[in-house]
Write a protein that binds this DNA or RNA. Sequence first.
DNA 1: CGCTGCGTTGAGCTTCTTCAACGATCGTGG
DNA 2: CCACGATCGTTGAAGAAGCTCAACGCAGCG
Lengths: 227, 227
Amino acid sequence: MDIRKHLSQVDIFNGLSLQQLDEVARIVSDKEYKKGELVFSDGDEGIGFYIVISGRVKVYKVSPDGKEQIMHIFGPGQPFAEVPVFEGSRYPANAEVIEHSRLFFFPTKDFVKLIHDNPSLAMNMLASLSQRLKQFSHLIESLSLKEVPGRLASYLLYLNDKNGSTDEFALDIAKSQLASFLGTIPETLSRIFTKMTIKGLVRINGPQVFILDRTGLENLAEGESKL
Amino acid sequence: MDIRKHLSQVDIFNGLSLQQLDEVARIVSDKEYKKGELVFSDGDEGIGFYIVISGRVKVYKVSPDGKEQIMHIFGPGQPFAEVPVFEGSRYPANAEVIEHSRLFFFPTKDFVKLIHDNPSLAMNMLASLSQRLKQFSHLIESLSLKEVPGRLASYLLYLNDKNGSTDEFALDIAKSQLASFLGTIPETLSRIFTKMTIKGLVRINGPQVFILDRTGLENLAEGESKL
DNA sequence: CGCTGCGTTGAGCTTCTTCAACGATCGTGG
DNA sequence: CCACGATCGTTGAAGAAGCTCAACGCAGCG
């Protein structure tokens, strides 16, 4: 059926037989969310995890005074909120859908059984968590060791590499969300974009970004120059 | 033998039979490190992971201009550097022994085999990685959403809870290391300790800490008050 | 047409870092 | 045993980076 087709395109189910995919498909709940809807909140009982089929989901923390730190933005094919599945506790952050999305939900109990008699599924899951850890360690490094211009430069270069060969691309999230992801606020981000433009590093037009001086951005990202 | 005895006290080997522990013991390299020795460096080929048997190891990143961010400090019973095992790449940080230590080393290839036919070992490993992810998400939250006094207050409360029932305990790492863990520098940390003392929240005597006003510290940690 | 959300800009201020100097402690070698 | 240097921690003064608060432009949409 349709569900199995989607599952077969998800990394963590790589290498599973059709029969095994069917077993997985049997435990899935197929869910739709509208833009802005909460999937779960920080502290909720963790009863399972999700995979994004279409759309996008942001996972974030909020400080007492309302500032928001985006930990991760997940797109199609990516699992999220696996932590409580294996660690048996509550969701450690909030998850909100930032565009109309379709998610598959996997209940903890059923999924743990599957993993138990499916070594390659277990290995895939270990690989997925490890990758997540690596991304987190980059984020930590970025937050504590780089200034905001450096973080932004890294992000722009990353987006550019991901988007193929040209030096032009569109931001994949709103600038205010980008600010939150970079651990800063929209005002600061805006000022840095302006400075980068003045220095001739980039040209900005709404969500469109043109990289004019890649080397300059790389120096910024490495902390070898300032704005 | 001796190795098996140590393994039996490590969380990720919980629930393994004596026979299975022997299989694990067979692939272990037993290693000793002197204080200050590097276990591996950022970017090294990841050929296996480690478990601390005795002593302590800090895992950290360094910025281009030399500032250091400690990601984690591992003590007896804790595995570290599992990421490259499952993600097949390089170590994403540096690891240095901060006191004379004994480590068990597990080569990737051998260990992956063990996991493959040992579902409960796989589950334990998944739980361990998940816990690590949760800790990282706390660190990220802390770095981006709290000011330094709040981070320090959290850390002191955490240490105090860990150390039993009294309001007196010793810092488990040097203050300069603590500064690095909190994402700041020794000067700033020192000033904050002074302010906390003036406000009557704590009393500091070298590495000894006396908590005088737990509620005050909690308010700081929650961002509900300032120094 | 006006509302609402997003982005930008300016002024002032807070927090933290930098740089420099100094005190204390500890281990080592004379 | 003392002296010395090294490491660690503390303190002060000055400066940089980023945040807060406030105002405003602009676009999309009911």
